[in-house]
Design a protein around this nucleic acid. Structure first.
Lengths: 161, 161
DNA sequence: AACTGAAATGTTATTCTGTATCAAGTCTTG
DNA sequence: CAAGACTTGATACAGAATAACATTTCAGTT
């Protein structure tokens, strides 16, 4: 059992599915999903939450894989660069992409109470694009994040969730 | 001389003006613009760019003021909390508000070449608000940043700018 | 004027995040 | 197989932020 969005769901299989998608994408685009990269993606998919680089590093270290910061940062650079993983700037942490395949400019909702992070499927940056066009700014990357309370944490009795 | 937006401008006087605005706002709202807070704001206004906390700290230290990290982080917390300064999450740095007074959810354009940061006057987060409303998420804070090339840095000969 | 509670400072230390650097291996492509 | 590009290993360091504690300042109250 896990949590997807702010609702429950059985996500045992979506990990494998997402890994398969990544494998396929890399094969098609001559990218190398090396063991370290694959393992980091797998960890992020399994945990299904935003994780700090050092949280991931701790897991790698426990498995005897390379346990120095550059190992995980290099893997994250690759995964973020190709859209398999997103960085949540507000939290200095990383989360597996919830909508792989789709070319998107993701937006995130971060609950400050339960710390769940949801990637919105919606395209929300049109206003930003317009403002950039107005001044001739060429956008290459977007950061769109909202922090607040998720539906579950807005009720007064939602403390121990 | 300085740079405002992505155009040149003489901004000698806008520093004083912005400081006055802050003074007035604090007086009206019973907030204390203490020397350390005022000095940090002044530095950010003068430099007129995004600065890391430790850049600011170095300046404070050179002046003999308190030179430990908490000094600058406390000042920044105050200034960010009341909207005098914004944090650029993408850069882990801070910039003086370019539109003081206006209640806004700021958005930023970050040039990866010349490192200038522009705060857009436009309200760009309506799409995000809509997506949040759809799922019942209560937004308390927004992060909207775009990274790319400013007009000046898009031409091939704009290297040494 | 003295008392009190809240806010602001001073200080030391520590933790978390991320990069620079250089040496060594691997892969692939002509 | 040689050259170049990419990936890894490893050490060290730089940069960002907070914890925890004692001390001081200050506005409002008695």
């Amino acid at each position: 059992m896990g949590v997807h969005g702010f609702e429950r769901h059985d996500h045992a299989r979506c990990v494998g599915s997402a890994l398969d998608t990544a494998e396929r994408f890399c094969a098609e685009n001559k990218l190398k999903l090396t063991p370290a990269r694959r393992r980091v993606l797998e960890i992020l998919l399994s945990e299904h939450k935003a994780m700090g680089a050092y949280d991931i590093l701790a897991i790698l270290a426990a498995e005897g894989v390379g346990s120095q910061p550059p190992v995980v940062y290099r893997a994250l650079d690759f995964l973020v660069g190709h859209g398999f993983v997103h960085k949540i700037e507000r939290l200095n942490s990383y989360i597996a992409c919830a909508h792989p395949g789709a070319t998107h400019s993701p937006a995130f909702m971060i609950c400050r109470a339960c710390h769940h992070v949801v990637e919105t499927p919606a395209q929300v940056s049109s206003g930003l694009d317009g403002a950039a066009a107005d001044i001739g700014f060429a956008i290459e990357a977007r950061v769109v994040e909202a922090e607040g309370l998720c539906p579950n944490c807005q009720s007064p009795d939602a403390v121990a969730r």
